[in-house]
Design a protein around this nucleic acid. Structure first.
Length: 967
RNA sequence: GCCCAGAUGGUGGAAUCGGUAGACACGAGGGACUUAAAAUCCCUUGGCCAUUGCGGCCGUACGGGUUCGAGUCCCGUUCCGGGCACCA
């Protein structure tokens, strides 16, 4: 017997793959390409845990499978190296974040190398290196120099817009913008450069905008919408407040429709597409102009329920709306100001949780253009400034929020749908027949002799009719609104891409493309400056010399040629938005990606990563790609054709219980557990005194939740002299809970330890065997022995008792060939559908069958190695070479399934009577339904079901089923 | 509240087209080998009844329906997970 020495085998082949650059890939027009990509990791200080490789293994299997099928497979890896943890580490230790980041990257690389991935490391990218972020800055400059035409639905160079303005002013062009503007050519031509640049800012895809932002005081920076969860920061959980600030933004909203439409063309899970659809939040409606009574002021409201205009009893403005100031009457000023102060005092989180009705009357009235009636204008925080126009018409009968407001302020409620009972709640459904629209003919204004009447129509018809009426008589327009907002692109941080921007007389100006990259300057301190500037304010050499085109000392700033540079840096998603394009051509100095490389690789065929990026990276990346597609750089409208979301692997956290104020720890089974309703958690008591749960490292806990007391005492000094209260069996039982793997929870399982003990191939197999790839599951080491045993059995197929290769060139038996081809079929199908867990089961069955058959035939055993190679590449490589092959098994052809080996002379089928299976019997494989029925009825087992009964019906499907219905 | 995805043994999970439910693995129990342990191998393992007779009944969250036949399709209910949420 030859032992399966996995440590030796894996070390040997990993070295060979490295030395021979087995996984290096080059463009080759003669072969079909396939692009596999993992979401690249942020290299954290905690290193890799067993959850990280899950997706990498799944995609590696697919990549290796495709390569064996003859595809030219691109399977790169890199690092998302900019991030907050490295900066916070730097603030704490004074060490430059680049040092700790690069250390972490080295550690990741070592850990990844032990698992045997087929990455082409020559294509590695790191978002924090200047040769990489040069292209992040470049894309930003391109966005700055672009506008978006709504009619063409694409980005175009800003020069075209300037030319248009010079000739026609705004004209009839429909443009994506921050604020709608209207001016003539004369007006434009009369403006100075500063004014022109301000106006252009309204249209640029990367623009400096004065907007409400999520400001996080604790982090000292603004955050994008997807970085704020439940009103607190995603990282750290700090409160977030709304603040008006001048920030760089990306006009992601311009691409709303394309981002939505693209979802129908890509192979992503329905749930993640739905998440993105929600996030984009398209709603079709109408904008209607409302004139303020007794003045020329006109404001616009947005509604999706145009049909309810006859039920409007008041209007509401968002407290942040500029209109508040305009409409408020003198006598209400004090009240309104007080209300605005109250709104400002509330945090985003308070506003989200607490929905009590608040608001104030502005003193003004708006005229409903349909009824001609005046309704009071209120100000309330339930109307959001950032959506629609920041103003609404309130229809309490058919909107629950308006209803609550109307009840609170005693405003009238007019029902508009037949049979709707609005005595205790609003009727929000868009169903039913419209009435009261109008109540009487005189309560309706005629335009050009036509007045609106909706009575008798269905709600849906009424919506369409009102939209038509409003548009036809210039009372407003049909409008599509999106919830998706522009991305705030500035971060008041150090460890990120610097902006290629300087301020010339306060006008933001791009640094010329040929001067990129603008490298991140050195600073003394990574904290904001004393005057409150972002950390880059600490940099001394941080000013732009326009004549010499280089970065110079700040002290040289003058009015002619040296100007201050932007102090903010770009957010985390900047570097991760186009990295898949850079992998195609990572060393190119002339372009983000060369035209040839982009044309060859097109887009990512398979993208694997976590679903937590659904509203962040996966939206930004699609936006970024669409922009680059408009530029002609990217060759595909969508960057990721197929997306697979791997589930998180959770850890088992273990707790011991410390008596409050003592160094005594009580076994879990001795405690009394009480549920505290107020705190919504369990509390634990021992002999009347309370015990607090304390994390203990999972390595201190053995099977059966028994704590190794000695190990526990040695684990941390604070437990050295711990007194342990044991149960009757003399054991200390811990409490365990499933949580996300995290360093601070001491529940991290490290892949290195598994590789050490069982080998990388076992780890790969086991992670895939754990269950469906998309599903979250706790890491449970218990099952790993099964996968390890399987590899040992596989190994034994190839060696005889003396340890020599046992493979022979004999003619394989029909049953061995059947076992093999059954496996080929199953595994090929499973890989295509990412059902790796079931293909591993199929391998186990096949190996058991071949062992029982004492199969030694080369044809079968080589086929087996070819099939297992993507899953367990090390053992496959070893066996492949042992069987006399010189080249790597990763270039071995993928076996082709042949139906002829599956042919069986007979099939075993269940025979049913009245739909229940009663017995099984053999039928000829080509038996006709009639023969099958006859044979089944003649069988001795059948007699007791036929006895005294009449056959009503027979159903027989060859190779499937025989059913006989009797009565 | 709206949208999406789920619920199968002690556990992870199979059943890909409506056709023998529980593959495969873990755990558990029993046995072989061994001084012993580890390793390895064999048997049993959804529930209940019968187990000196090869068998019977029930069973895929719950209640209905379609069908010769339903884990799978349809209607309703409950529960768990995820997303969105004063978005007009």
């Amino acid at each position: 017997m030859r032992d399966y020495n996995f440590q030796e085998i894996e070390k040997k082949w990993q070295q060979r793959w490295f030395d021979e650059k087995t996984y290096k890939v080059v463009e080759d027009e003669s072969r079909k390409k396939f692009y596999v990509l993992n979401m690249f990791p942020y290299p954290s200080g905690a290193g890799l845990h067993v959850g990280h490789p899950l997706g990498y293994i799944a995609s590696d299997i697919y990549a290796r499978y495709k390569r064996q099928q003859g595809y030219n497979v691109l399977n790169p890896m890199g690092y998302d190296a900019y991030g907050l943890p490295a900066e916070q580490h730097a603030i704490k230790t004074g060490q430059h974040p680049e040092i700790s980041t690069f250390q972490n990257i080295d550690r990741y690389r070592q850990q990844l190398d032990k698992i045997g991935f087929s990455f082409d490391w020559d294509r590695e990218v790191r978002t924090c290196t200047p040769d990489y972020y040069k292209w992040t800055q470049w894309a930003f400059v391109k966005m700055f120099n672009s506008f978006f035409c709504n009619k063409e639905q694409k980005a175009m160079p800003i020069e075209i817009l300037v030319e248009h303005f010079e000739k026609e002013g705004t004209g009839d062009w429909d443009l994506a913008c921050s604020e709608p503007m209207s001016f003539g050519a004369d007006e434009w031509n009369s403006w100075d450069d500063k004014r022109k640049s301000e106006v252009l800012m309204n249209y640029r895809l990367a623009f400096l905008g004065e907007t409400m932002v999520n400001w996080c005081p604790q982090l000292g920076t603004v955050l994008a919408n997807d970085e704020v969860v439940n009103g607190v920061s995603e990282r750290g959980g700090y409160p977030v407040e709304q603040k008006r600030m001048r920030q760089w933004c990306l006009r992601v909203s311009a691409y709303s429709q394309r981002l939505l439409d693209g979802l129908d063309t890509i192979d992503w899970s329905e749930s993640i597409k739905e998440t993105q659809r929600n996030w984009i939040g398209r709603s079709e409606g109408a904008e209607v102009q409302i004139r303020v009574e007794g003045s020329d002021v006109v404001f616009t409201i947005f509604t999706t329920r145009a049909d309810t205009m006859f039920g409007v009893t008041f209007f509401v403005l968002a407290p942040e709306s500029e209109l508040v100031d305009v409409v408020t009457t003198a006598d209400k000023r004090a009240e309104v100001d007080e209300y605005l102060r109250y709104v400002k005092s509330r945090t985003e989180r308070e506003r989200m949780i607490d929905h009590t009705v608040t608001g104030v009357f502005s003193g003004a009235y708006g005229i409903n253009p349909i009824t001609g009636e005046s309704c009071p204008i209120y100000i309330s925080e339930y109307v959001l400034a950032g959506y629609g126009t920041g103003a609404i018409m309130a229809v309490p009968a058919h909107d629950s929020r308006d209803y609550a407001f109307a009840k609170h302020f005693n405003l009238p409620i007019i029902p508009l749908v037949e049979g709707a009972d609005v005595s205790s709640e609003s009727y929000d459904a868009k169903e039913g027949t419209v009435m009261n629209s109008p109540v009487s003919p005189e309560r309706c204004v005629a335009y050009d002799g036509e007045s609106l009447c909706l009575n008798g129509l269905s709600v849906k018809e009424a919506i369409a009719e009102t939209k038509r009426f409003v548009a036809a008589h210039n009372l407003g327009r049909v409008k599509v609104n999106y919830r998706l907002r522009d991305a705030i692109f500035s971060r008041q941080r150090y460890w990120g891409e610097p902006f290629p921007v300087y301020y010339k007389d306060g006008v933001p100006t791009m640094i010329p493309e040929h001067c990129l990259p603008v490298e991140l300057p050195e600073v003394e301190r990574f904290l904001p400056t004393e005057s409150g500037e972002p950390p880059l304010g600490n940099a001394q050499v941080w000013a732009w010399d326009e004549v010499e085109e280089r970065i110079v000392d700040k002290a040289l700033i003058d009015e002619e040629r040296v100007f201050p540079l932007e102090l903010c840096t770009m957010p985390g998603f900047a570097g991760s938005s186009a990295y898949y394009l850079r992998y195609m051509d990572p060393k190119d100095d002339e372009a983000l990606v060369s035209d040839t490389a982009a044309s060859y690789w097109q887009s990512v065929d398979l993208y694997v990563g976590g679903s937590e990026h659904a509203t962040g990276h996966l939206i930004y990346s699609r936006f970024w790609n669409k922009f680059l597609f408009d530029l002609g750089v990217s060759k595909c409208e969508e960057p990721f054709r197929k997306l697979v979301n791997q589930g998180m692997i959770q850890g088992w956290s273990s707790f011991v219980f410390r008596l409050r104020g003592k160094d005594t720890y009580v076994s879990y089974d001795l405690l009394e557990v009480k549920y505290d309703d107020a705190a919504k958690k369990n509390r634990f008591f021992y002999e009347g005194s309370e015990a607090d749960p304390v994390y203990t490292d999972i390595s201190t806990v053995g099977g059966g939740k028994v704590l190794d007391v000695e190990m526990f005492r040695q684990w941390m000094p604070e437990f050295r002299n711990a007194e342990m209260v044991l149960n009757a069996e003399g054991q200390y039982i811990v409490y365990q809970a499933i949580e996300k793997m995290s360093k601070s929870k001491y529940n991290v399982v490290n892949p290195d330890d598994i590789c050490e003990r069982y080998g990388a191939d076992t780890l790969r197999l086991y992670e895939m065997f754990l269950g469906p790839i998309e599903q979250a599951k706790p890491w449970d080491v218990a099952g790993i022995d099964g996968c390890h045993r399987f590899l040992k059995k596989l190994w034994q197929l190839y060696w005889d008792k003396e340890g020599n290769l046992a493979v022979t060139d004999s003619e394989p038996s029909a049953e061995s060939m059947r076992s093999l081809h059954k496996l080929i079929k199953k595994v090929s199908e499973d890989i295509e559908s990412f059902s790796y867990n079931t293909s591993i089961s199929a391998f186990m069955v096949a190996v058991n069958e071949l062992t029982a058959q004492r199969c030694r035939d080369r044809v079968v055993l080589e086929g087996l190695v070819e099939l297992i190679a993507p899953f367990a590449p090390h053992i496959a490589e070893e066996l492949w070479h042992a069987m006399g092959h010189g080249s790597s098994v990763c270039d071995a052809p993928w076996p082709v399934f042949e139906e002829r080996y599956m042919v069986e002379s007979s099939v075993k089928l269940g025979v049913q009577f009245n739909g229940k299976v009663r017995f099984a019997m053999d039928f000829a494989a080509d038996a006709s339904p009639e023969d099958m029925v006859a044979l089944a009825m003649a069988a001795p087992e059948a007699q007791k079901y036929l006895e005294g009964k009449q056959v009503v019906k027979t159903i027989a499907i060859p190779k499937r089923i025989v059913n006989i219905v009797v009565k």
